[in-house]
């Protein structure tokens, strides 16, 4: 579904990603881990199409299309969803209104009829259960005055509504207490199917207790330096990142 080949990206001339290779197939969950500043969030942003990042080399194909050639909104319409680390506030625009605009633009792109108010609300009610979100929250201005947990739950709720094929969760666990973490993870797990895939970007192993990955990759200095299964995450939890850093850095000096 997603193939990343030798991806290099920089921001304002500073290289951040220095040759990423990754293959994600339908039905898989990949975890991207790594120390601060290793380029995890950059990878998520580049895949979603944030303009500040300049792709200097490499290619990304998504369902056979050149992802890098698509505008951010078209990537979303093709089925790429990014759950933001810091969801953005839009004053005066209710979550409901925002989502209805989004859902219908995505549907239009996919050649589907726009949902009328009744059908949309029915769909919303159904998906609300997934992340135990309150309807009152959805009539408020998008993310404005939401708690950290509410923002993250709202992200997963949006993901449920947009039915993406590739979901990228960028540090979705940051700022969540244990209960919220469980609710958010449950939502993500219920949305999993053999036709979609998930990339979980995280710092800590604890999220992976809930969202169990098929593969774990360690990102360091803009490259994937180690890949493994979920056991790798446990090892990292125990030993920290230093042993990986040392191994990579000593190799570089040789």
């Amino acid at each position: 579904m997603l193939t990343i080949k030798n991806l290099h990206a920089s921001i304002e001339g500073t290289p951040i990603l220095r040759g990423i290779n990754l293959e994600v197939k339908a039905g898989e969950v990949h975890a991207i881990m790594g120390p601060n500043g290793s380029g995890k969030s950059t990878l998520a942003s580049v895949l979603a199409g944030r303009e500040e990042y300049e792709v200097t080399e490499g290619e990304v194909s998504f369902k056979g299309k050149d992802l890098l050639d698509l505008a951010p909104e078209d990537r979303a319409r093709e089925g790429v969803f990014l759950a933001f680390q810091y969801p953005v506030e839009i004053p005066g625009v209710s979550s409901t209104n925002f989502l209805r605009t989004a859902v219908n633009q995505v549907r239009e792109y996919r050649g589907l009829e726009a949902l009328d108010a009744v059908k949309f609300l029915t769909m919303m009610k159904e998906k609300m259960k997934l992340v135990e979100i309150d309807q009152k929250l959805l009539s408020r201005s998008l993310n404005e005055g939401f708690s950290g947990g509410e923002k993250k739950r709202n992200e997963i709720f949006q993901m449920a509504m947009l039915e993406p094929t590739l979901s990228i969760l960028d540090e979705t666990d940051s700022g969540l207490d244990i209960d919220a973490l469980r609710i958010v993870s449950n939502g993500v797990n219920q949305l999993k199917s053999k036709d979609n895939a998930t990339i979980v970007v995280t710092h800590y192993q604890r999220l992976l207790d809930y969202i169990v990955p098929d593969y774990v990759h360690v990102l360091y200095k803009g490259k994937i330096v180690k890949s493994g299964t979920k056991e790798l995450a446990l090892e990292l939890e125990e030993k920290g990142y230093d042993w990986i850093k040392e191994a990579v850095d000593s190799e570089a000096t040789v």
Binding site: R50, E51, P72, E73, A76, R77, L162
Partner: peptide
């Protein structure tokens, strides 16, 4: 830019 990108990422032009 953040607001626009957020909307774009949800499929909104």
């Amino acid at each position: 830019e953040d607001q626009l990108f957020y909307c774009n990422q949800r499929g909104i032009s």
